[in-house]
Simulated assay, not measured.
Amino acid sequence: MKIAVFSAQPYDRRFLDEARIAELEKTPSAPIEAVYFTDRLTIDTVALAQGCAVVCVFVNDILDAPVLQALHALGVRAVLLRCAGFNNVDVQAGERLGMFMARVPTYAPEAVAEHALALVMTLNRRTHRAYARVREGNFALDGLLGMTLHGKTVGIVGAGQIGTAAAHIFKGLGCTVLVSDPAPQLQLGAIATRVTLEQLLAQSDIVSLHCPLMEATRHLINATSLALMKPGAMLVNTSRGALIDTMAVIAALKCKQLGALAIDVYEQESDLFFHDHSSDIIDDDVFQRLMTFPNVLVTGHQGFFTVEAMREIAAVTFANLACHTRGEPSANALAVNARPT
Results as ranks from 00 to 15, higher is better:
residue 152 K to M: 12
residue 285 D to Y: 06
residue 160 G to Y: 04
residue 51 G to T: 05
residue 142 D to L: 12
residue 156 I to K: 01
residue 214 M to R: 15
residue 93 A to D: 09
residue 248 A to N: 11
residue 93 A to M: 09
residue 150 H to K: 11
residue 18 E to Y: 02
residue 257 Q to S: 03
residue 240 R to V: 03
residue 92 Q to L: 14
residue 51 G to I: 02
residue 211 C to N: 05
residue 248 A to K: 09
residue 216 A to W: 04
residue 12 D to S: 15
residue 235 L to N: 05
residue 315 A to N: 09
residue 311 R to M: 09
residue 266 Y to R: 03
residue 175 C to P: 01
residue 82 R to C: 09
residue 71 L to Q: 02
residue 138 N to L: 10
residue 137 G to V: 03
residue 298 V to S: 10
residue 210 H to E: 07
residue 229 M to Y: 01
residue 187 Q to S: 14
residue 99 M to R: 07
residue 175 C to M: 04
residue 339 R to H: 12
residue 134 V to C: 12
residue 129 R to I: 15
residue 118 A to C: 13
residue 257 Q to C: 03
residue 333 A to I: 03
residue 315 A to E: 14
residue 260 A to D: 11
residue 113 A to L: 07
residue 201 L to K: 06
residue 212 P to N: 08
residue 49 A to Y: 01
residue 190 A to F: 09
residue 107 Y to A: 12
residue 193 T to N: 03
residue 188 L to R: 14
residue 48 L to Y: 06
residue 166 A to R: 05
residue 154 V to W: 00
residue 331 A to H: 09
residue 281 I to Q: 11
residue 98 G to V: 08
residue 261 L to N: 02
residue 65 A to M: 05
residue 279 S to A: 14
residue 290 L to I: 10
residue 177 V to K: 02
residue 76 V to R: 05
residue 282 I to N: 10
residue 10 P to N: 00
residue 330 S to T: 07
residue 296 V to C: 15
residue 170 F to T: 10
residue 335 A to E: 13
residue 188 L to P: 04
residue 198 E to R: 08
residue 235 L to A: 07
residue 19 A to L: 02
residue 172 G to K: 10
residue 284 D to H: 05
residue 36 Y to V: 03
residue 332 N to S: 13
residue 35 V to D: 12
residue 318 F to V: 08
residue 289 R to M: 15
residue 48 L to C: 00
residue 305 F to Q: 13
residue 264 D to N: 08
residue 111 A to C: 11
residue 76 V to E: 01
residue 125 R to D: 08
residue 171 K to F: 12
residue 296 V to G: 10
residue 16 L to F: 15
residue 317 T to D: 09
residue 291 M to W: 07
residue 127 T to Y: 15
residue 8 A to R: 07
residue 89 V to K: 07
residue 119 L to A: 09
residue 218 R to G: 08
residue 121 M to E: 09
residue 155 G to C: 00
residue 49 A to V: 06
residue 209 L to Y: 03
